[in-house]
Write a protein that binds this DNA or RNA. Structure first.
Lengths: 173, 173
DNA sequence: CGATATTTGATATGGTCCATAACAATTATC
DNA sequence: GATAATTGTTATGGACCATATCAAATATCG
């Protein structure tokens, strides 16, 4: 799946569908049974991921950062001086698709491509001062408005357990 | 993100990138630090979801069913006699996008559209005999080859806890 | 050294999924 | 009975993903 750009309109709520479900009375077609679907790993994973990305975009509305862009800034900050191929492949982004993404970040003066002196084919990536500042603000927003919501919902211990299990799936499944 | 259709070529491994990382010696650019990324809910969720969908497609290769198609068959089986709007919106699929999906399933004789006698605008959805048979085989494949893998990886208790937390996120985040 | 192969960033292109607008047929509403 | 709403559908555009290909630069190896 993918991130919807417009973050504001959820348009179609997964469960509870088709009718506004007012009060009582009225013809009211009864709700559909999800059945085994609610136990399917892929189904619930996807739904959760969509909700999380949606919330992320809302939290980042003031900074106009998508999850993918945020991950690039984070990785470049943590690993300054790496080239496009290294950053992209670490994030699972194919090099051709990374070009437009960098064009965007560079045009907003958040990061910069610098020709490497060792290997004049490659572009070294670094965050600009503005990029560092924006990333700092983004981190705070994510921590206070996004990740904090998980604690409210699951509790600290469960949140950590969840992240751990997801990481294990991502790495070993 | 989305499901890659070709299921076989992972092409870009997320972590451990850019170099085959043979033994030792050689210039060997050291691995990048993921840093805070590995603690980001959205990042790890997305990565896990991709891996799970990838594995799902491999398990279903013999039946040629995508996660989305599987969910449609499951829902139609559980709720026979519903129309396209009801099934689609329950799954979070927009009606226009559901048309081609049904065209596909119907052309493979897995499900059928039946003009409703009550409301001649709507199409009632049902599984064909072949659809029921295929779905039965799909369920077994998913249970034995897909979901079972979660137990091997996390254990029964953790698996149930994970599904529960993801469902909670999907519904309440 | 020099020919060949490889790597890097980039472009072009096609596929899939997602979202909106609009339409004809049918039904609901008043 | 005129108007509004609903259903399935088509058309269309955007975002994301994947492959092939290219020029420039570098690496490899005879």
């Amino acid at each position: 799946m993918t991130v919807s750009k417009t973050a504001e309109k959820s348009s179609e709520k997964p469960a509870d569908a088709a009718k506004g479900r007012k009060d009582a009375s009225e013809p009211q077609a009864e709700a559909l049974q999800l059945g085994e679907l609610s136990e399917q790993l892929g189904y619930v994973l996807k739904r959760a991921q969509l909700k999380v990305f949606e919330n992320f975009l809302r939290c980042m509305a003031s900074l106009q950062l998508t999850p993918a862009q945020f991950s690039v800034l984070l990785l470049v900050e943590k690993n300054p001086g790496r080239n496009q191929t290294e950053i992209a492949s670490t994030l699972g982004i194919l090099r051709p698709n990374f070009v437009a993404m960098l064009d965007n970040l560079e045009s907003r003066d958040l990061c910069a491509r610098i020709r490497s002196t060792n290997d004049r084919r490659s572009h070294i990536l670094v965050l600009t001062d503005k990029g560092k500042a924006v990333l700092a603000r983004a981190k705070k927003l994510v921590a206070t408005k996004h990740e904090a919501r998980l604690n409210d919902l699951l509790g600290q211990a469960n949140r950590e357990a969840l992240i751990g299990m997801l990481a294990k799936i991502a790495n070993e499944f």
